Structures are given as C-alpha cells and as structure tokens.
Amino acid sequence: MTKLSFVTITKNSADRIEGVVKNALGIGDESIVVDTGSVDGTPEIAERAGAKVVEFKGEFDYSSPRCLGDKTATGDWVFHLDDDEVLPLHYRRVVRELADNENFSLIHAPQYVPSYGFFTRLPRMYVNDGSKHFEGLVHEWVYPFGSATSGDFMIENRKHNVPNHIHLENKISRPRLAERELEDLLQKDVPSDKMESAKQASRLMHIFQLSPRFERVIDKRMNAIYEQGINSGDPSPFMLREVAYYLAKHLNDGRFGAAIALQAYDLGKDVLDPVSLGTIAELVYRYDSNKALEIVGSGLSQHINFSLLQARAKVCQVLGQGMSAEYYFEESRKRLPDNPTLDVMSRLYVGRGLDGIIDIFI
C-alpha cells in the first residue's frame, strides 16, 4: 500500500496540536510537524501524540517550512494540513484511493472557509518524489503544474477560531512578503523556459491578490511573459491559463481572458489536467458555451470531480438547458454520491439561485 505522510507547520499550538497529529495518523501513516519556534510546549505534545517533529530555523515564509516537511517525510505521498484544519476520518478511503491513482500526482483539496463565506480549492496532496514542491514567500503554491485533479473530500477549516494563526505567531506581514517576492521576481529575466514562464505568471497573480497597488508593474511583466511565450512559437498552455485567469478575475477583462484561455486549450488539450480544464471552462463559458462544454467533457473523461460538474452546470445554464440549483445538486450527487461539498452547499445556498451558489466556489 502507498505510504502517506501528513505535514503540518505550526507555532504555539499546544491547545490543538495533539488533535491535529491524531487526525493525521487516523488517515495517513506518518505525521510530520514542522515547528517554527514554539515556546508553549507544542513540539513535546506533538511527539507524545506520535508525530515526528522537526524544527525550522530559517526566516519564516509560507513555503520553506513545508519543503522541510516534505524532505523529512518518508511517505510516497504527502498531504499538507494546517494546524487549524481537520480532515474528517471518514474520508480515509477516498484519500487513500487517490494516493493509489497513478494518473495524477497532485490533488487539490476542497475547503469551506466559514469566516469568509466561500469555498476554495488548494493544492495540498502530491507525490513525494521530489518532482513537486511548494514555492512562494506568500500564497504558496505547488509547482510544476500538471497532472492534477480535485479530491472528493473536504477539509474543515477552523480559521474563524484561530485567525491567520501562523503569520501572527511569526509576526509576518503578508503584504510585505508579497512585495519582497515581487522585488525578487522582477530582478529575474522574463523566462523562456515553458514551465518557468507558467510558474512566474502564477506567482505574479498571487502577489497581485495581496498587493494590488503594484498592478501596473505586475501587468507589464505579465504581458512580457505572454509575449515571450507567443513569440517563441511554443507557449506553455499552463502559462496561458494563468494569464487568462489574471485578466478575467483581477483585471475584469473576461472576453480577452476567455480568448487566451481558448488558446491554452487548443495548444494543450493533450496535456492539460482536469484542474486546468475546469479553470479554462470557467473562463470561457460566458463567451463560447459550446466550446466550454467540450472542454468540460475532456476533463470528465480523465476524472469525474466536483469542479468539472460545477463548470458544466454553468455552461448548461447559459445554454438554457434548465439547470436549476436543485437539479444541479441532484445530478451532481448521482455522479459523486459521497462528495461532502454538495451537502454543505445545498444546506447554505439552495434558494439563492445557481449563480449565487456556484460563484462563491472560487
């Protein structure tokens, strides 16, 4: 059986680290706790609960401790779970089956954030063979892109009880980290390597989320990355996906974003994974719904997941195929009877209409 390690970065979480470790060991085979300078006995409590504890001694950012955890872990796969999160034990079978699925090397974890009132999907679980890693001082992400799908489980987020715990404990200003990362990135040349161009576009987009005041310089660099890729004659479809998302979601230029998203699909339909295809379909569906339906179908042929069914629901609505909120839930439940997001969303949002429901899932 595939060995699964859980990695948790923490500081001063003596009141809950035991539960985090026991949660990890109830699903996985190993719990790695990366302590970033606790003074309340957190490491000792974690060790008594069964974790292997390693101390992170460098300057704190959001990726370096995670990478240290990966190097310490002995599992074939790693799952990153924060110290204010819980993965309910009844998802053990689903998670273990994903670890045994050789078609994908990265799993995005659905998560509902009560304090902000939306769902999100973050890359949390991946093959621990050195091929993937977290990168970014802030808004950390897993690179390189590719071979990713969404898991049919849901992390329970408790950040409304422990707001922004890690960076408060480490006295970190997220906007300042974003500014520093942008400064470092702009000192580099515009990348010619395909995967590096995708990664740099992704980092710019995440930096913009925290520091929109740098829109002009970010926009200029993003355009340079896009032009470099197009002029090369062989642009990365993952880079095009990131540029399209940036244009549509942050610059509110949905039509141009959709055009570039279609470029990404046409160039990379043979290499794009279900997560990428779902993102592209979400960007395209208002402008070319039939093409979006084709893109969703391509993703579903690889792996049926909630994100793709969600995108298909939007397309069907635009096409006038009568996809009401209630029908959408019923149809999705048939395809994914155990998916937990359906229960939460139907309980919270049925009655608001389909747009009110699925637009909060970002």
Results as ranks from 00 to 15, higher is better:
Leu137Cys: 05
Val138Phe: 02
Val138Ala: 09
Val138Tyr: 11
Val138Ile: 11
Pro144Trp: 05
Pro144Asn: 04
Pro144Phe: 06
Gly146Trp: 02
Gly146Thr: 09
Gly146Val: 12
Ser147Asn: 14
Ser147Gln: 12
Thr149Tyr: 06
Thr149Phe: 06
Ser150Cys: 15
Gly151Ser: 09
Gly151His: 12
Asp152Ile: 10
Asp152Ala: 14
Asp152Asn: 15
Met154Asn: 01
Ile155Pro: 08
Ile155Gln: 01
Ile155Val: 12
Glu156Leu: 03
Glu156Val: 06
Asn157Lys: 01
Arg158Met: 04
Lys159Met: 12
His160Arg: 01
Asn161Val: 04
Asn164Tyr: 12
Asn164Ser: 14
His165Asn: 05
His165Gly: 00
Ile166Cys: 06
Leu168Cys: 14
Leu168His: 11
Leu168Gln: 15
Asn170Asp: 10
Lys171Tyr: 14
Ile172Thr: 12
Ile172Asp: 12
Ile172Cys: 11
Ser173Tyr: 01
Arg174Met: 13
Arg174Tyr: 06
Pro175Gly: 07
Arg176Trp: 13
Arg176Gly: 15
Leu177Tyr: 11
Ala178Trp: 02
Ala178Val: 12
Glu179Asp: 14
Arg180Asp: 13
Glu181Cys: 01
Glu181Phe: 10
Leu182Met: 13
Glu183Val: 13
Glu183Leu: 04
Glu183Arg: 09
Asp184Pro: 02
Asp184Phe: 07
Asp184Glu: 14
Leu185Val: 08
Lys188Arg: 11
Lys188Gln: 08
Asp189Leu: 09
Val190Leu: 00
Pro191Ile: 13
Pro191Asn: 00
Asp193Leu: 10
Lys194Pro: 10
Glu196Gly: 02
Glu196Ile: 01
Ser197Tyr: 03
Ala198Leu: 07
Lys199Arg: 11
Gln200Asp: 08
Ala201Pro: 00
Ala201Phe: 05
Ser202Lys: 07
Arg203Val: 04
Arg203Lys: 08
Leu204Gly: 03
Leu204Arg: 02
Met205Glu: 10
Phe208Tyr: 12
Phe208Leu: 05
Gln209Tyr: 11
Gln209Glu: 15
Leu210Met: 13
Leu210Cys: 04
Ser211Asp: 14
Ser211Trp: 15
Pro212His: 03
Pro212Cys: 09
Phe214Trp: 10
Phe214His: 15
Phe214Asp: 15
Arg216Met: 13
Arg216Thr: 11
Val217His: 11
Val217Gly: 05
Val217Leu: 11
Ile218Pro: 06
Ile218Tyr: 06
Asp219Pro: 04
Arg221Ile: 02
Arg221Gly: 00
Asn223Asp: 09
Tyr226Phe: 09
Glu227Trp: 10
Glu227Cys: 04
Asn231Arg: 14
Ser232Met: 07
Ser232Trp: 08
Gly233Ala: 04
Pro235Cys: 02
Ser236Asn: 07
Ser236Ile: 01
Phe238Asp: 06
Phe238His: 08
Met239Asn: 01
Met239Ile: 05
Met239Cys: 09
Leu240Gly: 05
Leu240Val: 10
Glu242Val: 03
Tyr245Pro: 07
Leu247Pro: 00
Leu247Cys: 04
Ala248Gln: 06
Lys249Thr: 01
Lys249Met: 08
His250Pro: 13
Asn252Phe: 14
Asp253Pro: 15
Asp253Met: 05
Gly254Thr: 09
Gly257Arg: 02
Gly257Met: 00
Ala259Thr: 15
Ile260Trp: 01
Ile260Cys: 02
Ile260Arg: 00
Ala261Gln: 03
Ala261Arg: 03
Leu262Pro: 00
Gln263Arg: 11
Ala264Trp: 04
Tyr265Cys: 08
Leu267Tyr: 13
Gly268Arg: 01
Lys269Ser: 08
